[in-house]
Structures are given as C-alpha cells and as structure tokens.
C-alpha cells in the first residue's frame, strides 16, 4: 500500500478505485480498460495539479515522506561497487551517516550521506538520521581519504538535524560540525552536495559545504524546522497547530525555488511527478547525471582554482548593504 500525505487523500480514493477496477476486470469478460484509462488520466492530472502548487509545508511533508528514497537507496541505485567505510577512529561508528567509496558513471568517488531508517527498528538504529559528533568526524575522515587519492566527494543531505543529546555535547557536537565546515572549505578535490530530503540546519550544513550544491525539487533546507520556529514564535499555552507550522514554513523560505532565487543553491534537480518515491530509479539516474556533469567541469580546474572558487562561493553568501 502506497503512503499518501494528507493533501493527497482525494488522489488516494481515486487510485484505490482504479486498483479495484483493475482487479474486477482481471480475468473477466467485462472490458473496463477505457474506464481505467480515463481514471488514470484523471489521477495523473490531479497529481500534476497538486504538485504544481505545493505549499512550503506540503513540501516539507514530501521531503520527510516515509517512502522517500534515502542515501542507501540512492547508493544501491546509482553507485557501483560501493564499499562502506566505517568509524571515526576516535570514538565509534555513527549509523546516522553512511560513508564509503564507489563508482558513479564509471568514476570512483567518496559518497557520504545522512541515513534515516525505515521501520521502527532501523529508525532507532539510525537515530532518525540525526548524527552524533563521530558521524561528522567519520565524514571528514573519509573526505580526507578521498582527497589523498584524488577522488571527488559526493554528499547526500537528509537529516532533521544533528542529535541533541548528552553524549553528543560531551563529545563535542559543535566542535565536530565547526571543524567540518572549516576543513571542507579547503579539501583539494571537487565536492558535489545534493539535498535529497530534509536539510536540517547545522547538522545538514556540516556535510554540504561544496563546489556545487543541488537540491531535489521537493526537498527543503532550513536554518530551523518549521516546528521549531513556530514553537519559538507562537507557542501559546504549549499548543501549536498545523497552521502555525505552515506559517513558519512560509516565513522561513525553505523551498528549492526560494533558495535558487537567493543563489544559495546552484540548481534544482527535477523530481518525477508525485515525488522521488514514485520513481526512485528515475530520480537516482537524474542525480547521477547532475553529479557527472558537475564533475566534468570541476575536474578541469586546478586545485588552487577549485579551492579559491569554493571560498568565494561561500564567502559571498549574505544579504547585506555593502559599505
């Protein structure tokens, strides 16, 4: 059974009906194919309509869709001969970040990404995609390894944020993120980063300092979650409504369209109709194409130029009156 978001409910009814008709006509004399075709067209139109006009909050829901492909799904679909590399060599191995090496369209590279889990057990194991410091330290270790062997780096971003826990604080969550931001700014190989789902604040940023930053069409990237933002601004008697979240999502300007307009991201990778989870293979192929295309350009640059351009790219972000 497919999972439908609230705003997709009319679509669910229609598609359930189509399934019923298909079952009915199966092995039967009655020919319902024209009706089915008609309804399928209607469903498609309905979906197009829904998806052409999504609110930022609806996009947030799609970005967190439980069926949305995660890092390991994309790795399975687009990375050849992937070998996972574990551990930060300091404290432990963080299952909320997956890292390793493999080939995308024939080129060996390091692939690193946040990993949410599917199903209760795996979600807990992956800590809902919220890394601890060792996750960030592992990511940096693998990036530096890639740097030594002149392999490009790809990162896939999908996290609600860095984990707020006692151990995380004790082991230096802030230091781990800060160090990644600093070190990645001068890594001597091309880095391409793609937000595939939820870009949750500093915990996402720590993996997304890059030469090219792309976002899947219905992913989001925000300094704070709409829920967190609403809680700070509008919590009355501890009660918050969906309207508050929706308002916060609007205010935060967290959609791909906003961020492209702000020049915070380089490009939007279009998703299949209905979202990445409707056609994961197509989405994976598109991501791989964007990576390959970006690397074609980036790999022609000298190391000095690559790093200088990356610095300028990061340095100029801001919205100030120049004096």
């Amino acid at each position: 059974m497919a999972y439908y978001l609230d705003f997709e409910k009319p679509l669910e009814e229609l598609e359930t009906k189509i399934e019923e008709l298909k079952r009915l006509s199966d092995g039967n004399e009655i020919d319902l194919s024209s009706e089915i075709r008609q309804l399928e067209k209607k469903a498609k139109d309905m979906r197009s309509e829904f998806f052409s006009d999504l609110t930022p909050w609806q996009k947030t829901m799609i970005a967190r869709h439980p069926e949305r492909p995660y890092t390991l799904d994309y790795i399975t679909m687009m990375v050849e001969d992937f070998l996972e590399l574990h551990g930060d060599r300091r404290f432990g191995d963080d299952p909320a970040i997956v890292s390793g090496i493999g080939k995308i369209n024939g080129i060996s590279m390091a692939v690193i990404g946040h990993q949410k889990g599917r199903g209760t057990k795996e979600r807990i194991f992956r800590n809902f995609g919220q890394p601890n410091p060792e996750g960030y330290r592992k990511a940096l270790r693998v990036m530096k390894l890639a740097e030594r062997f002149k392999m490009p780096v790809v990162t896939l971003i999908d996290t609600p944020g860095a984990f707020p826990g006692i151990g995380a604080e004790e082991r230096g969550q802030a230091e781990a993120i800060a160090t990644n931001l600093m070190e990645v700014s001068k890594i001597k190989v091309p880095i391409v980063s793609i937000v595939i789902g939820e870009g949750g604040s500093g915990g996402a940023l720590a993996l997304s300092v890059a030469d090219r930053l792309y976002m899947l069409e219905h992913s989001v990237y925000s300094v704070i979650s709409p829920e967190g933002c609403a809680a700070i601004l509008w919590r009355k008697n501890g009660e918050l409504s969906l309207d508050d979240f929706s308002r916060a999502a609007d205010a935060l300007k967290l959609t791909t369209q906003d961020l492209k307009a702000f020049k915070i991201i380089d490009d939007i990778i279009p998703e299949p109709l209905g979202g990445a989870h409707r056609e994961p293979e197509t989405t994976a192929k598109r991501i791989a194409e964007y990576i390959t295309k970006a690397l074609e350009t980036l790999r022609t640059k000298s190391t000095a130029k690559l790093i200088e351009e990356r610095y300028k790219k990061i340095r100029k972000i801001g919205s100030i009156t120049q004096t």
């Binding site: 600093m182 940023l205 300092v209 704070i224 935060l252 990061i314 340095r315 972000i317 801001g318």
Partner: peptide, 19 residues
C-alpha cells in the same frame, strides 16, 4: 543562527569557518 534571515544565517557558519 538568526532565524529571521533563514538560510542566509545558516550559511554564515560556513562563511566564517572558511575565513
């Protein structure tokens, strides 16, 4: 980070760290 400037604020973390 300052919520009222959204992603511009978040990106300042990368900017100052690179500097």
């Amino acid at each position: 980070a300052r919520m009222q400037e959204g992603m511009f604020s978040l990106m300042q973390m990368a900017k100052v760290s690179a500097a």
